[in-house]
Design a protein around this nucleic acid. Structure first.
Lengths: 354, 354
DNA sequence: ATGAAAGCGCTAACAC
DNA sequence: GTGTTAGCGCTTTCAT
């Protein structure tokens, strides 16, 4: 606003036409003679004119900008989604701005940035949002196109793109069971997005499916942070009967846990197996490399943008819930349960001895 | 814009005053009786009114929003800056939006998003920008407050906040020299932001200061990517006389290089020492942990926002260039040069033997 | 201390 | 095909 920009009035004057004609020539809406269009375009080029999006927005037209709202851009997973969304949005010739809220989204914080640029966005994508029920209700009541990514804390009338946390977790725990583990612990994350709860549900189901009882002391609380994983790991080691495998609701906590085990000279996966969730970069850098689960982030971003664009363009065929399977990424942090491994060794010894 | 928001007209009607009085009561500019103000505030609360920033912007007022432009939000360093900026901006009660351009900033790409929300921002911060000279010239000519972070590709009249790449690199290489290294290689990054060039300058100066000649075959080109570091590492191993230490222009390349050395069964730091730059999280996860250099990101973000705010508020005491020292983070990837280590061993053997 | 009018830059709706 | 009118929601004059 400090900069006096070239306005349509100036372009029109230079081209010797009315403002409206210039507007039409530029936007391509309505009839303009080729001759006039050429004159206007020449004027545009000469003056370096660009339409003032603000003014256009005030009229309520499309802005070709979508907003992405996140709570924690520093989170590796969130960042991966945002980067994927950036790429995807470009395919639709749209621009995208990111708002990093830090705070949980509630009515007070929310009004600020929703109304702040209310009218700026053609649509909004919320990635892994931590929002109050109030705030969600406001979003649901909003006529603006909105898509949520990886929000499963509760049912919602808004369209949601999800990675399958429940089945992913179930598969992971089932694979631990397949490796002979019976005492399997779980480290929770925070409940905001609902992902931790889904992962826990998968864990419980897999245990139930295998006919294994869960000692509730194995279910630790955590905050998705590495530190909380470390603390949970220590607490689990202090139990009189240790678990032989630990499934953490995300990789950071699994890595924190791994550090706790290392500090206590507990072999991974020799004595205790570890499985995380998310497949962040660090998962393949730690030693042993972490077995974990991965959401198809690029595909999910694609679906989110596509679904949003459908709503912006008022196309038919809207979907309310698009779910993608998680993939189990097997590395070295999970192995056979100690007693099984021991049995194998003794069996092979016998074989060798006979 | 889809959502019909509450306007000032409605608030004024409800409070039984004119629009202008309502505006004054809300903004706090100009005289309003306490009585009237109370009535207006009551109406605001009741209707859930929030000022439409767009409309305010059109009149050229402050928006209390600053924009941050980056080329690659997925970059760990960029992300760390953006997160630090987010925190910092909040202290000034401002909001912040991030634009992830992906492309290099040039006139074509630039016009789009500069003019796009030209008027939306009170100011702009460019973090590690990759911009054409044209684009930079446009920015320099702009009357809007702008601050660049870690841009040192060329001189500019814009205010810059910098980490000291030159002295950091010089210190790092000097420390390698102190460990007995004489054949020290350097892996370049891309030239866009100018950081690689500064780091190279520090490398050359340190070698010169130590009276060591540089074999130009030791100076490898890279792209700041892990893969390019791996390739550079392979190429260096193929030399008839290998360097005993490698200084990479960033951590990713150092880690790539480490992988190349591991694949060739070259001991780090036993046979070849490695030093990176940036201290990304991965640097302390790899084995051996990477010796590297670190910019004080939080302080730099603070300085950038402070400097921008000074300009927005038209305060005196502006600074053109704010530079912060880099810190050498010593870990295990750099050690004594082989011949020195050998000498020490033989000396200690002698001592032990005598 | 409050109000009325004008206009920021643009475009939808209606003339001509 | 092109021009005229009106108005988005707000704030900066200038009047009262």
């Amino acid at each position: 606003m400090k900069q006096k920009s070239v306005t349509l009035v100036q372009v029109a004057a230079k081209a010797g036409v009315s403002v409206m004609t210039a507007s039409r020539a530029i936007s391509g809406e309505g009839y303009v003679s080729d001759d006039t269009r050429a004159k206007v375009q020449a004027a545009v080029a000469e003056l370096g004119y660009a339409t003032n999006t603000l003014a256009r927005m005030m009229k309520g037209g499309r802005t070709n900008v979508i907003g992405v709202v996140v709570n924690d851009l520093a989170s590796v997973v969130v960042n991966a989604f945002v980067s994927a969304l950036t790429e995807e949005v470009r395919k639709y010739q749209m621009d995208m701005f990111i708002y990093n809220s830090i705070d949980d989204l509630d009515q007070q914080a929310g009004r600020r940035h929703r109304d702040l640029l209310h009218g700026l966005w053609d649509g909004l994508i919320y990635v892994l949002p931590r929002m109050s029920d109030d705030y969600l209700a406001t979003l649901e009541a909003s006529p603006s196109p909105i898509v949520l990514v990886n929000f499963c804390r509760r049912e919602t009338s808004l369209p949601v793109v999800l990675g399958d946390n429940y089945n992913g977790a179930r598969d992971a725990v089932a694979s631990l069971v397949g490796l002979g583990h019976q005492r399997i612990a779980f480290i929770r994350g925070t409940h905001f997005s609902g992902q931790s709860a889904e992962r826990e549900r998968g864990y419980r189901q897999a245990m139930h499916d295998a006919g294994l009882a869960i000692d509730e002391r194995w279910v630790m609380k955590g905050t998705f942070s590495e530190l909380s994983g470390l603390e949970a790991g220590r607490a689990l080691l202090a139990l009189d009967q240790r678990p032989t495998a630990i499934f953490a609701a995300n990789d950071e906590m699994a890595i924190g846990c791994m550090n706790a085990l290392r500090a206590a000279d507990v072999a991974v996966p020799g004595e205790i197996s570890l499985v995380g969730f998310d497949d962040v970069q660090a998962a393949s850098l730690v030693q042993p490399r972490l077995t974990t689960l991965r959401h198809p982030i690029a595909q999910m971003a694609q679906a989110a943008v596509q679904e949003l664009m459908r709503r912006i363009q008022q196309q038919p065929g809207l979907r309310q819930r698009i779910e993608f399977p998680s993939e189990l990424v097997i590395r070295e942090s999970a192995g056979a349960a100690p007693q099984v491994a021991a049995a194998r060794v003794s069996r092979s010894r016998k074989t060798a001895g006979s």
